[in-house]
Design a protein around this nucleic acid. Structure first.
Lengths: 228, 228
DNA sequence: GACCACCGTCAAGAACCGATCAAGACGAAC
DNA sequence: GTTCGTCTTGATCGGTTCTTGACGGTGGTC
């Protein structure tokens, strides 16, 4: 989850920003004062900061400088002033971008994406691999291995196994699985599940096949050996 | 010496920019057309690019995208238009900043400093030659060799192979590839991919062709021999 | 034991997808 | 305007995957 800290002392703007960012799927943390912002930043570093320069208790530029002492988190400064001098100072003191109010939400979002993109390319080496016992599912590579041996799955098989592996040990109902793999409108086609469960078990081999158990009348579940 | 490429088709602005940047101690290279800019960028990657969107021969956004295919050099876009849509598109296609004309020189300089500061802190290992087994791709020169022999690719073929080589061994989804090579709005044209994959395989020869494998229903992937 | 509901397996046809060839459209260069 | 290379689009073939139906098994209930 991508987290963005929004700092502004005007409740109306804070609300607008939060709504716009949340709508795009970001987790938003807010702060109304410079002190509160620094507090947040010492406990949890977000993926980006949107910072209004005009706060009641502190100058935004001081916040930039303070943050830069220990973090490279991207800072996008908002300001009512179009003063050239302020801009230059803020940018030189650590701000990554400077937007003058009134600003447009799409533009702000685009600039947030730029800031995040930069961070993203810096640390790009963690491919999320789902694990469940000897079963490894490398989502970005669409590669599955069981006990080290590669398992060749079709797209639907992969989707179904990935859905189950996302919640090891938990039961996924027939409806949930059908919804996840086939999309809405297939809620009653439980036969698909039986066919695919069978195929997956066959491909995982005798050992791996045992991991996929059916809960009669409910759904399917992947045994999580670490839980036993 | 820090080098900055300035691209603008208006001689007066070009002169102003060059004077301002040179006065601050930067080495300035200029280009008056998109073509000229890309030419410069293939022979020498500057530390930052200042790019006017309104060029005679090409759309600035296309230049952003083209450059991003092989380099992360910071791009600061200048534009006479204050169109929100243009801003968003330019930023999403690789621009790092967007300044609306008329702009102030101190602000531009501050934003250039921001761009350079970032580059300084970033890992400086951008070797512009991608490798994957016997395949070598010299991004700035648009030159590809397989097992030492040069391979002659068209621009789209090159872009597709380069995108794949950037993540050796990893699957790039159809959508990702289409987005990378053709830009947004081509998400469903998977037929392009088939045609180009076929052409690339043919040009890479029997050995090289095997490296480009399709993951049915998902996308394409370049085999990374160093991983096996 | 008969019935029922549910699961597992198998197999065949349909639907889909990928590879390739080739022709037409388009644009740049001369 | 012509020519050339590139991009787009259409047609076809071969293969895989998905869907569907048939059948057998299991466990519970009457």
């Amino acid at each position: 989850m991508t987290t963005i800290l929004v700092v502004d002392d005007e409740p109306a703007i804070l609300r607008t920003l939060k709504a716009g960012l949340t709508a795009r799927g970001y987790e938003v943390v807010t702060a109304a004062t410079g002190r509160a912002a620094l507090n947040v930043l010492t406990s949890q570093i977000p993926d980006a900061v949107v910072l209004d320069l005009g706060l009641g208790d502190m100058d935004g530029v001081d916040i930039c400088r303070a943050v830069r002492a220990w973090s490279e988190v991207p800072i996008i400064v908002l300001s009512a002033e179009d003063s050239e001098h302020r801009k230059v100072v803020a940018l030189d003191e650590g701000a990554d971008d400077y937007i003058t109010k009134p600003f447009s939400m799409p533009e702000l979002l685009a600039r947030v994406r730029v800031a995040l993109r930069r961070r993203g390319s810096a640390t790009d080496d963690d491919d999320p691999v789902l694990r469940c016992g000897q079963l490894h599912i490398d989502l970005p590579r669409h590669a599955v291995t069981f006990a080290g041996a590669p398992v060749d799955l079709t797209p639907k098989e992969f989707a179904m196994l990935a859905a189950l592996t996302r919640y090891p040990g938990r039961v996924l109902t027939h409806r949930t699985l059908l919804h996840e793999v086939w999309g809405p409108g297939y809620d009653t086609e439980t036969h698909y599940l039986r066919v695919y469960a069978s195929q997956i078990r066959k491909k995982l081999g005798p050992l791996g096949g045992q991991m996929l158990v059916s809960e009669p009348g409910i759904g399917y579940r992947l045994l999580d050996p670490s839980e036993e």
